[in-house]
Computed example of a mutant assay.
Amino acid sequence: MTSAVAAGTKSMMAASAPNKVNEDEERLLRLLDQQFGLQVASQHQRTTIVIMSEFGRCHGVWPGLANDKLDEHADLAITTDYRQVLSEVLLARMRGAEVSNVFPGFTPGAPLGLV
């Protein structure tokens, strides 16, 4: 099974619409094969796809929208270091991986429990 991690929502989506998740997963694999020649469909058991967005940064403590809580008084403050999310995926999929080789100077914190 392909590991598609979208901020930990795949399992929630699968519970509510299992066929839709599988269809979307298959569509994504075909697109990667056709457009980029990655041949991931044939390697789906060894493939991890991570889809991330900065929209709706909801992991962590909600800072609120007060002007003094916004980054540079304009943007929603970052509450998640995405190196943490990616390091969890890396460690789950590549046992024994060294996070410091991928993210020099970064030390993972407590797991977020996404994987």
Results as ranks from 00 to 15, higher is better:
1 M>T: 01
1 M>I: 01
2 T>H: 00
2 T>N: 05
2 T>M: 01
3 S>G: 00
6 A>V: 01
6 A>Y: 04
6 A>D: 04
9 T>D: 06
11 S>Q: 09
13 M>T: 05
14 A>Q: 06
15 A>F: 12
18 P>A: 01
20 K>P: 03
20 K>N: 07
22 N>G: 01
22 N>Y: 07
23 E>W: 09
24 D>M: 05
24 D>T: 00
25 E>M: 03
26 E>C: 00
27 R>T: 02
28 L>I: 05
28 L>R: 09
30 R>W: 13
31 L>K: 05
34 Q>K: 13
35 Q>E: 14
35 Q>G: 09
36 F>W: 15
36 F>Q: 14
38 L>W: 11
40 V>W: 06
41 A>I: 03
41 A>S: 15
41 A>G: 13
42 S>T: 08
45 Q>W: 08
45 Q>L: 02
48 T>N: 03
50 V>S: 08
53 S>N: 12
53 S>G: 14
57 R>M: 07
60 G>D: 06
63 P>H: 15
64 G>R: 12
65 L>T: 14
66 A>R: 14
68 D>C: 06
69 K>Y: 10
70 L>Q: 13
73 H>M: 08
73 H>S: 13
75 D>N: 14
75 D>A: 12
82 Y>H: 09
83 R>F: 12
84 Q>T: 00
85 V>E: 04
92 A>S: 08
93 R>L: 00
94 M>A: 07
96 G>D: 05
98 E>V: 02
99 V>D: 11
103 F>E: 04
104 P>H: 11
107 T>L: 12
108 P>A: 05
109 G>E: 02
110 A>Q: 15
110 A>K: 15
112 L>K: 11
112 L>N: 07
